[in-house]
Simulated scan of single mutants.
Amino acid sequence: MLLILLGVLILHLMILILLIVSTSASAWKIGGNTSTDLWLSCMTTNGGSHCKTASNEDWIQAVQALMILAVLFCFFSLIAFLYQLFKMVKGGRFYFTAIFQILASLFVMCAAIIYTVMSPDDTLAYGYAYVVAWVAFPLSLISGLIYIVLRKKE
């Protein structure tokens, strides 16, 4: 049982790190000497980098908000898991943790879908931060489903 709990905890920490990296990294779209993310659009010329803030369009602000919510809900579900692990009665299930983790999964999925549909520059390729966000989605969904099934034992 201890190994299962340790595995779930490591999976949860890995998902949290993936969400933080995908939210803060500057590689949602890359190409040539240009890279864009949720916050900045940078162009490298003659060894120097020139960055400007992301557009003020509603869709990018929605993606920013959803990714921040995904990170927060993943963090809150980690705190809830640790709290329930020590305070919950024997035989109880981690429903509260599961709900937060599934919500984090849905937020990151919605953010990635909005970015995919609304991203204006089709000449750029998707970067690693975009891929990391898509990897974090099924992992957090699976983690949430594991929390639903998981039961606290002695």
Rank of each mutant, 00 (worst) to 15 (best):
L16W: 05
M1C: 10
I17N: 08
F86L: 13
N56R: 15
L145W: 04
L72K: 06
P120G: 05
E154K: 14
S22L: 10
I142L: 05
D122T: 12
Y115T: 01
M109K: 02
L6Q: 07
A112M: 00
M88S: 15
T53D: 14
L9C: 02
M14Q: 09
F96D: 03
L9I: 04
L82Y: 03
V149A: 13
K29Q: 06
A129N: 02
V135G: 03
S35E: 12
K152L: 14
G7I: 00
M88E: 14
G47T: 10
I4Q: 04
I10V: 13
F94I: 08
L2R: 15
A27L: 06
M14Y: 14
Q64D: 07
T123C: 05
G31Y: 12
K152A: 11
T36V: 15
I79L: 14
S41Y: 15
Y95E: 11
T53M: 12
T23F: 09
L16I: 08
K29T: 10
W59K: 08
S143G: 13
I60V: 12
L11P: 00
L78N: 06
I114R: 04
Q84F: 10
I17Y: 07
L6D: 00
L11R: 00
Q61L: 09
M88D: 14
G91K: 10
L18C: 05
L6F: 00
L150D: 07
W59L: 09
A125I: 04
G31A: 12
S140Y: 00
N56W: 15
L5N: 10
V63H: 08
W59F: 09
F100N: 04
I102H: 02
V8A: 06
R93W: 03
Y95I: 09
G32E: 10
L18V: 04
L106C: 10
L66S: 11
S105W: 08
R93K: 11
L103T: 12
G127K: 02
D121I: 01
D37Q: 06
T34C: 10
M88Q: 10
I17F: 11
C51G: 11
A104N: 02
V71P: 03
I102L: 11
I17Q: 05
I114A: 03
M109A: 04
A65F: 15
N46P: 06
K87Y: 13
T44Y: 08
F94L: 03
S140C: 00
T123S: 12
I146G: 01
S119C: 07
D37K: 07
N46C: 11
K90P: 09
V149Q: 06
G32K: 06
L19P: 02
F81D: 01
A112G: 07
K29P: 00
I10C: 09
F75L: 15
A70Q: 02
S49A: 11
S55C: 11
A54E: 15
S22A: 14
Y83R: 15
I114N: 06
G47Y: 11
L141D: 00
A133E: 01
G32Q: 01
S49W: 05
M118E: 14
F75G: 12
H12N: 05
D58W: 13
V71Q: 04
M109Q: 02
M67H: 11
L78E: 03
L78T: 12
G31I: 13
S143H: 07
T23P: 03
A104T: 01
V135K: 01
C51H: 14
P138V: 05
G48F: 13
V21Q: 01
A136E: 01
M109N: 00
C51K: 09
A111P: 03
I113N: 03
Y130S: 00
